[in-house]
Design a protein around this nucleic acid. Structure first.
Lengths: 195, 195, 195, 195
DNA sequence: TATGAATGAGGGTTCATTCAT
DNA sequence: GATGAATGAACCCTCATTCAT
């Protein structure tokens, strides 16, 4: 009846390894973050890292996978609370941008490290990104839109604008939430007077 | 009166050096393109390059400068032919995107190589980018817009979306011109039916 | 009377381990075949291998031992059927060469991996080789030879030529049997006309 | 008339680099001799070596080339003094073996490092070896031999036996010259009494 | 018998850069 | 303007091996 308490899962350093990799890839980018940096951050020797990952690219892919998982979850959770299509899209964009700009090393890596900069992992990274973007394809598919609006371009424009914000955002000014909402507003209203 | 015409331009290889640097930075990115690669492409030895540039960052900055110059010229020339503010903006976006996606190694470097990826040159690169973006600030300032529209966000959204297209564009489908126009259209019309 | 039959051989993987080690040492050589390679080939982890062998050198020595055992057996069996000394030598050479070139990973390792390439095992490997070569010392001792012929050099020449054939033999042309016979023939006849 | 003495060829360290590489490859074999070893022996940093050679394999090939050159020269010079075909062959074998066993790091590498142990350089090494062996093909072609003697096998046997002597030779006993002569003698006489 | 996780050393190689000539 | 030769640091990675479990 009394069961012996099983030893808690071995004090695995793999999660910390991923955390530090995410942090460094986000901070310095893929090329500038060395395997040594990552290993040192988790208190390992560089070679030890290769017990967990066969190559630096594989480490990146693992971070990407986790990044996509986390940001997907964030978007799914955020949109679940809404039923109105525009509200749902807005919630998704806000979640996306908050992960991207502030909260989440993993998610930031997904946007910051561009597939074309890592040829050996390019296709895998692209697949992961594409899978994620499908969430937005769906959110946009649900929008009631005027005839003739190309939903694909709507997605590309919206996500492009959001993702690019990593290049100009500085903590302290507008919040991610504000940014996302303003971008959406620009799409919702007509900028041409004659309408 | 007739002075002996001195050959005004030595056959120096600096232009080719910049051309090849632009090509390689565009193709591989900053980190993956080595000084060796660039030197080899011009038929120089790596050390010789340092006669022209004090560091790899300086070489990048020189390419950036030329890139900004060329893409600025392209935008200025394109907009010069138009007087209607929206037409002017459209012409600017098309010129921007064509340089970015197809025509111009220098211009592509300006978008492809992100300042944060090159800490030692970051501020210089950012200054150059900002100077260029001012062209769009002006184009957008001239637009007749409904009250309450934040022109700064309009610029950030539009340029963000355009710049990000480097990440998904593939030659053969839509042309840069089409893409630019569709993005603008999305901004011009109201996506919300009720408006 | 009937004792409980103990399963005499556990399903232990040591034989397969040796087999794969032999295969890999033969295929890649000692240095290029890593403990990882061997372990992976048996479906073990590298560390697990150290339950069976204290070091990579010990593993090599074990393969060598088995190699010498097998090639010795082959030679003994082949010569057993012959009584004429020259026939016996020929049978031994053919058996030696067939093991060496075609049939036997273990035997091939004995010739392919040179003692001087593995300093830590050098003396042990040399002892094993020497023990094996004694078979040929005996076969040659039994030959009726003209006076003045140095039997030691005969052995060195014959075995050297045979062993070196690993460096030029390609499956498909002459068979090991043919090669061995031709070498012997060259020794048996006089190449100098005047005799 | 009095010309200004040109600066003696730059005190190039490449020759020393090759010398030390030859020495170490001969001493330890290809795999066990590291780039770091070679560099240290010549007083360079490991990376500096790559100014001269693009890879470790290329360094080996360069040593091989020099080895083949030197041993070829030795054989050519040695045989030049003789006119009798058997004497010429003998002189060639003696020169070959002296280079192989005692005198010449470069030549020893050619025999000690086996092409199959260096897959990336295999074909190049084999070509070099083959070119060298053609000297012996020619020497053997010139021999007056009984009908039916296969000269190719004669070459393979002779060179195999000579080359393999690296595996058993120890300074102090018989000299290379003696060894070469004894091997040849074994071929020249008939070992079969009845012939 | 093995695994999981790591060590410590060292592998070959590439990098941006320097500087005498 | 450029070369030839090298530096020093760092690169990613692989090695044989260890040891608690």
């Amino acid at each position: 009846m009394s069961s012996i308490a099983r030893a808690p899962r071995s004090d695995n350093r793999l999660p910390r390894l991923l955390d530090e990799a995410a942090r460094l890839f986000r901070q310095k980018g893929y090329h500038a973050a060395s395997i040594r940096d990552v290993a040192a951050a988790v208190g390992m020797l560089p070679g030890s890292l290769y017990y967990h990952f066969a190559s630096k690219e594989d480490l990146l892919v693992a971070v990407y996978e986790e990044g996509v998982r986390q940001i997907s979850d964030a978007v799914v959770v955020a949109t679940a609370g809404q039923s109105d299509p525009w509200r749902r899209l807005e919630a998704g964009c806000v979640a996306h941008l908050e992960a991207l700009l502030r909260l989440n090393d993993y998610a930031q890596v997904v946007i910051r490290v561009l597939p074309r900069d890592v040829p050996k992992a390019r296709s895998r990274l692209t697949l992961l990104r594409d899978a994620y973007e499908r969430l937005f394809t769906d959110l946009i598919a649900a929008l009631p839109l005027p005839a003739g609006v190309d939903r694909r371009y709507l997605r590309l424009m919206l996500l492009g604008a959001l993702n690019w914000s990593q290049n100009w955002y500085h903590e302290g000014k507008d919040t991610p939430k504000t940014i996302a909402r303003r971008f959406l507003k620009l799409l919702q209203v007509s900028l041409r007077g004659e309408e």
